[in-house]
Nucleic acid binder design. Structure first.
Lengths: 224, 224, 224, 224
DNA sequence: GATGAATGAGGATTCATTCAT
DNA sequence: AATGAATGAATCCTCATTCAT
């Protein structure tokens, strides 16, 4: 049985770790806003400090460079997106439907929050693929299963990813920068489905699937 | 009839403009070499000055920031690319072939020179469309003609551009960053053709067209 | 009788001189606006060039330094002010009235045009006395005559000038910067008259003299 | 009762603030010496850094421009002047004597040190009134009391301030720039007193009051 | 005489990083 | 762990001046 002293010690350590975690999250969230505001290259470490209201030294207690914190922000983002996409994918079996749903959710989430959207637009060409390993695994699996069961006819999985991601980045960009029709993302995703070998009619049908919180279904939050 | 004075004046101005143009070009060309050498982020304005052999003030007479001169380099690049694509397009009548050739040439030229490639990858999401008006006009015309003569079935021209450009950017990126097969760009472009409604076999056939100086045909210069 | 040739030559020279004079005036007038806008120290030569629309070299054909053109502007100003004050003084014999009228006109002209006003406020402490010799001569003469005929009792002419000029500068400043009553300058000048030995009632009477275009009589042009 | 942690924290913050204050004062004092040495316009930021022995970045942590630090120096000066004037005023009850003493001390201190003098001459038209709130309060109170007890007959308090400050600025300027008699400031202040309604003889009597360290009593430091 | 392109010394400014508290 | 003052190398930028046309 642990002594009283060691229990107190444990709680203190616990609290310390907890505080540290929170400080870290505050820095990440501030950095998120800063990157959204100024792009991925312009920000200087001072911007993160000012936005977070924390001290200069605190930043260096958690991150060493701008690149470091950008990575943390991107990671945070990828997890958020995963968390929103997975429940939607759960009931879907057809690889075509799963990929379509993933892309629509992805685009939808980006369009729903300008900050998040611009970070993604700027990050996709930098990262050059799905934002984290979990996403990458899911994408590859779905594509492979579609190929295996004859739903897709494609010559290269990397090329498929390039096409899908490139499309997504440009569509998000268009939604953020221009006036586009409400079903713009569905049109673009349907086109992409055809490049996998799905015929036009079927592609349109799939891309019309009902989804929570899509750009096409609800007017996006337009915060600057 | 212009007076002697005004003629002299005109010549002086002309000469001035000519000198200015040349200086500007020299700066742009030096900047291109610098970007090639150090990447897109590292260079400082001093690098452009040293490389060009011109004066510090001269740089500021022509550009205000690093971003500024990068944009000028990209613009110059767009014109070069146009100049390379147009002769290739000349003999082609079929809109599908024309679009395919444009994309292949574009990707090919980008892949052929790492500097050029990274500049393009970086500029595409910034510009959000064809890199200059001439390119944009050509692209739109070909798509429209394809739609009119029944070659393409698409629901949105902007979505088509987003798909094509996004694909191009990511493919260039993959060629520059990863090991990809020699015919990678042809595979990706063929996929894109299918999203326009071209059937798979035909798409592959078109994408296999012979072209001068393509990534598939000549190994790219791999300077870092 | 001059030959035709020499007459043409004469006209040309005449025209040349005329053009030069006009260019010079244009530079001075541009500088006037610039000094008013940015103060006496901030402007750089480029500001004069941009404001005038003339060429860099042209500036150097007429002036060598910023100090040079400031002097020219001040001179121009002094002449303008003289030209407005002298006709007003002409009918006045009493030195008290003459000095009062001079100060009121001076303040009035400064208040009437913000540009002119701020230049004067900024110049008075720099010049430290009447703006040019003609003004200085007039002021001294009037003070001396007032002393000689017993109208003024003062112990020092320089101190009198310091008091008058200092008052004028601060009053102009107040009119330009704060809300002051319409007869503010008349109140201040009346106070100044008392320091010369004029009794209060008389001072107020004199300071109430009718004058053309005074801040107290007509609402000033408030151009920025 | 504050926890040990918060007490430690408080001390740390306290110490930080203390250090910051000291650094700031060191910069201001170095700047004063630099202004004394080179005049008000010539110094460049590097001069302040070298003179203070602090780092370049430290300057920018406290001030943004040369004008900024000049203002800080002037402010410091205003406090010093207050501190010198107040003990002199203490025994004086008569508002006329108090105002007279204030002006004489003010002019005297300015004349006593060229740097201080030129800074004041330059700041007065910029600030347009007493240099800080304490001075302003004192001046207004004395004027009001003089009006209330019938010692002064004036029509406007702001005009009185304009007259007094304008006079002081120009008198300081004259003392610094020209050869003037030893009792110059007393003559000018006596004139000013008359404009408040004090009769000539009384004005001269008051202005002759004995004062410590006046221009008339000690020859000023004439460093350029 | 007017023009405006180029020049480069001189000075201003930033910002990643350290470190005592 | 958090803080924030100080640091100074690296970099940016201005602007008076020249000079060929």
């Amino acid at each position: 049985m642990p002594s009283k002293k060691s229990r107190v010690r444990a709680r203190n350590v616990q609290t310390g770790i907890e505080i540290r975690r929170r400080t870290r999250l505050e820095l990440i969230s501030a950095a998120f806003r800063v990157f959204a505001d100024k792009g991925l290259e312009a920000p200087v470490i001072d911007d993160f400090i000012v936005e977070s209201g924390l001290a200069r030294g605190t930043f260096y207690n958690h991150f060493r460079t701008r690149e470091d914190i950008l990575k943390a922000v991107a990671d945070e983002l990828a997890w958020e997106i995963n968390d929103r996409i997975l429940p939607v994918l759960k009931p879907l079996k057809d690889p075509a439907e799963r990929i379509c749903a993933s892309l629509l959710c992805f685009i939808g989430m980006a369009a729903e929050d300008r900050t998040r959207g611009w970070i993604l637009v700027r990050m996709i060409p930098v990262v050059g693929g799905p934002l984290n390993d979990r996403m990458r695994r899911h994408a590859r699996n779905d594509i492979k299963r579609g190929v295996d069961n004859g739903r897709f006819q494609i010559d290269s999985i990397p090329a498929t990813l390039d096409l899908g991601l490139g499309m997504a980045a440009m569509v998000i960009r268009s939604i953020l920068a221009k006036r586009v029709p409400a079903d713009y993302s569905r049109i673009a995703v349907a086109m992409f489905m055809r490049s996998l070998g799905i015929d036009a009619k079927e592609a349109r049908r799939i891309a019309a699937m009902p989804l929570p919180l899509l750009h096409s279904d609800a007017s996006p939050t337009h915060r600057k």
